[in-house]
Design a protein around this nucleic acid. Structure first.
Lengths: 335, 335
DNA sequence: CGCCGAACCGGAACCGGTTCCACTGTCGGG
DNA sequence: CCCGACAGTGGAACCGGTTCCGGTTCGGCG
């Protein structure tokens, strides 16, 4: 494996010049640079990242702390992060903390001990407020995506509006008896969790129309869990004419349950979700769209800016994305 | 930020001894080791990964090349890889090549130029055979998961049996007119792709029972795509009594289409899938279970073994996992 | 024609660990 | 009692880049 020294010698220059020529720094004549680059190419030279890191102190790596990546939302954010990082010639170091509680925190500790990154993005649910505080002390740009955070910069859907959007939509169709089904957060949230804020925005909207909000029903976040809970819910005698679900997974759980119980959607029941996961389209689910991959790209863009010109005091501002209502076949006027 | 030197000085030993003490190498008395470790702890010392890498030539990192991680299968494998890698104190470097064709290959080239890993796992669809060849020349353990590969070690579901399992199941229920719906592979496969082999195993099973296999129908891999195709398919007059789908996503697409067309499942139509994705349970889909996360853990275990004691010639053996039939409510005897 | 500065380049000092090798002291065996 | 083996330790040479600093060279200007 050829070293920089070899390239330098072969090109008839010093290591210093070879380094400058290859890294694109100036102080090298065009001719020399060209020659060095060609020799490097011929020799099949590859810079040693380790050596470069040691010398510069920069890793050209950004870390991602996330709950299990096998879930759509987290995977999507990660996909966006990877995409943008790659565009900036940076690597992505993945720390999958797994389902919270189950060893996730030890993994986090290991990251703190061992992780070397230039920037860090944490995805919703990964961490509690105290942990975020410790990250902030890491002296690298840290951002959270999926939930507004106190301690760090954050990128997230404007949850205060999602409830308004779907509820208004249903009320506009003539519904009066609208129930909100929220998904249980699996971890102690920072301040008010996404699901809480989505629920609150539903309640606010109902109140604004002089309607009584039904008590929020909370079900598991997974499709299976939501489905099981929905089976019980839909058989209650006081079934509403419309349900605002906190996420698409919950909404789909309800859809499946309804089908199995012979309740027609949207004839007997209207249902809305939030997220616009890929299967939502297939099921004709009316929902609120968000683009997690884009959030991922945006957070990387911010990190890169921060790396290029660090802001004096830690930037803890929040970016919220406007939700977009997507009307499909799961909502209709009540019978 | 304290350096090893500082720790050594504070503990009254040399850098050499401090290094040995902290890295767990022997040649240090228990007392000294304990003392050094305590001082390191007190000073908040963290080894510089960059320096360690430079000195040892080892990155303690394993790379993952994958198509978009926002899809369940890929995300699940990655989850398993991350889990196992963490257990072995290794980091995970993610290279999300994205949807193939769309710049994925340039990303691959970048990886080749820049990626420094001790071991590499590539997930199905990431690469063609020629690329795999180039990876094999990288002098690090390489394994493929999700599909048997010629050039590398591989871990995958035994696709030659999945078709047997579900087809036998349907025939056992009394079905005679069984159709196979396959999903289109998005990239040129190595040899015979998963979907091809699943299809073949269906055909073989039909033949073994003296039944005519219907021509294979191919639909897009995504739920939406499959759904659209299924809408047309199910309205044809020669609708079969049972459908063997190549994946759960396709199966769900069919399920949704059936529901919208008023075709009862399993009354009018039985449907099976493959994968046992999380939502399969909620939909009561009869399917073949596989555990991608486990494959991910296994591949890491292999890499670790290979790192500990490299085999002489490249190990290109294949591990195949026995598929497991999960019977749910989407299959029943034909009417 | 002489002087000055910009452009280019080389030498050498890092970056922070690991590891080979030589050295000391101690202990068991002959 | 002496010698060899061996455990424990320190010195120093790496690993492979980047970058500071100082030295040439050369063109332009007074």
């Amino acid at each position: 494996m050829p070293r920089l020294d070899d390239v330098a010698r072969a090109a008839g220059v010093s290591k210093a010049t070879a380094s400058r020529a290859l890294s694109g720094a100036d102080g090298v004549s065009a001719a020399t640079r060209e020659r060095v680059q060609r020799t490097a190419e011929e020799l099949g030279f590859r810079v040693s990242g380790a050596a470069r890191r040691l010398a510069t102190g920069l890793t050209r790596t950004i870390g991602v702390l996330t709950p299990s990546v096998d879930r759509w939302y987290f995977g999507s954010v990660l996909h966006g992060v990877a995409d943008a990082a790659d565009a900036h010639e940076h690597d992505v170091l993945l720390y999958d903390l797994g389902v919270l509680g189950k060893g996730g925190h030890e993994r986090f500790e290991r990251f703190l001990r061992r992780g070397e990154v230039d920037g860090l993005v944490t995805i919703t649910w990964s961490l509690g407020d105290r942990d975020l505080q410790r990250l902030a002390e890491l002296r690298v740009p840290v951002a959270t995506v999926g939930e507004p955070a106190e301690r760090t910069r954050s990128f997230s859907l404007d949850d205060d509006t999602t409830g308004v959007l779907v509820t208004e939509h249903l009320l506009g169709l003539g519904h009066r008896d609208v129930l909100h089904v929220s998904s249980a957060t699996e971890v102690q949230p920072f301040a008010a969790s996404s699901s809480d804020r989505r629920a609150t925005s539903y309640e606010r909207t109902m109140a604004a129309h002089g309607l009584a909000a039904r008590p929020i029903v909370t079900v598991p976040t997974t499709l299976v869990g939501a489905h099981a809970a929905a089976m019980a819910l839909l058989e209650r005698p006081d079934r509403p004419t419309a349900i605002v679900a906190g996420t698409d997974e919950v909404a789909l759980g309800i859809l499946v349950a309804a089908q199995q119980l012979g309740i027609r959607v949207p004839g007997d029941l209207s249902v809305t979700g939030v997220d616009d996961i890929p299967s939502a389209a297939a099921f004709g689910l009316t929902t609120v769209r968000q683009d997690p991959a884009q959030h991922g790209r945006d957070v990387v863009a911010w990190i890169m800016r921060e790396l290029a010109s660090p802001s004096e005091r830690p930037d803890t501002s929040r970016t919220t994305y406007a939700p977009e209502l997507v009307v499909r076949a799961s909502t209709a006027p009540p019978r």
